[in-house]
């Protein structure tokens, strides 16, 4: 760990090379595969920390594997028979269309056009994953519309050009319907362009497996963490806006593995993270102290 080498690569050259750990809760893998073969865009719905991002990574890897190993000629992105890149854009409220499409930059010699991530994904033929799409500004949604129907094309008005998407391209977006905000809802004209996969927390057993795997903690600890997750999620809509995410529980597991006392680890990574309300914190603490000795 003395000299950490960082790896820099172009976003279209980002491939998921290691198999991301993912435990399917139902047939979402098959659906995704089928949708990809048919190039139907996919919408992932679900609360935070339910594995949406991980799922996309897993699928990117899986499809790459499939492409390179199982039937190389069947689906070959970019016509090269190579791996499928994954381009992830986390959307935020200042994300404009040009952040996705690209823009002119001024340089010493004048102006230069730079492709945005979406354009690069379209050109290269990878999965473009727009995380938390509702957070992006409204004008972005207009851009993705032509990409999500039969046209599969990206219009760049600044250049006055249209790019037909490469064969391997697929748009995947995610959003969290849990927000109680009507203005941040996804418009129907947008949402009806996607196949929607609903994500929720895995059941206790699966979650324990996931926690154990991801955090490397003892299976017994993982089981308790999973139980804690289930119990805390019972408080949703009763003061908690969101249930405890699997990610949160994994963090607790990691801390425990590092030797932090069980209860303390849960307190810092779960209780205090999930709410600021002292009374709910106290209640969650009580659940923690019941589950953890």
């Amino acid at each position: 760990m003395a000299t950490q080498q960082y790896i820099e690569r172009n976003i279209e050259e980002y491939y998921v090379t290691e198999q991301p750990y993912y435990v399917p809760t139902s047939d979402e893998i098959e659906i995704f595969e089928s949708a990809y073969r048919q190039r139907v865009p996919i919408l992932l719905k679900g609360p935070t920390g339910t594995g949406k991002t991980r799922f996309v990574e897993h699928m990117a890897w899986r499809l790459s594997e499939g492409i390179s190993k199982r039937n190389p000629e069947d689906v070959s992105p970019n016509g090269t028979g190579e791996k499928l890149p994954l381009i992830t854009v986390a959307c935020h409220e200042d994300l404009t269309a040009s952040d996705l499409v690209g823009r002119y930059l001024l340089d010493a010699d004048g102006t230069r056009w730079i492709d945005g991530p979406l354009t690069r994904a379209v050109k290269f033929g990878g999965i473009c994953y727009l995380d938390e799409i509702v957070e992006a500004r409204k004008d972005t949604t207009v851009i993705i519309h032509p990409l999500t129907d039969h046209r599969r094309s990206l219009t760049i008005d600044k250049l006055g050009s249209t790019i037909d998407a490469a064969d391997g391209f697929l748009l995947v977006v995610s959003y969290n319907p849990g927000y109680q905000n009507a203005l941040k809802d996804l418009k129907h004209s947008t949402r009806q362009r996607f196949v929607a996969l609903e994500f929720d927390f895995p059941d206790e057993e699966h979650e324990a497996l996931i926690i154990a795997h991801e955090s490397g903690c003892e299976p017994a600890i993982a089981e308790r963490l999973a139980r804690l997750g289930v119990k805390i999620r019972n408080l949703r809509e009763h003061g908690l806006e969101e249930g405890a995410s699997t990610r949160m529980l994994i963090y607790a597991g990691r801390l425990i593995k590092e030797g932090v006392a069980d209860r303390r680890a849960c307190q810092v990574s779960v209780t205090w993270g999930i709410t600021d309300d002292p009374q709910i914190q106290r209640s969650i603490d009580e659940v923690v102290t019941s589950i953890f000795a």
Binding site: K231, I232, N234, L235, H238, G239, Q279, I280, R282, S283, I284, E286, V287, S290
Partner: peptide
């Protein structure tokens, strides 16, 4: 009461 009530809610998932 409030703490216990929420504790029970968490454990059972019922009010």
């Amino acid at each position: 009461r409030d703490i216990i009530s929420m504790y029970c809610l968490a454990l059972t998932g019922r009010n």
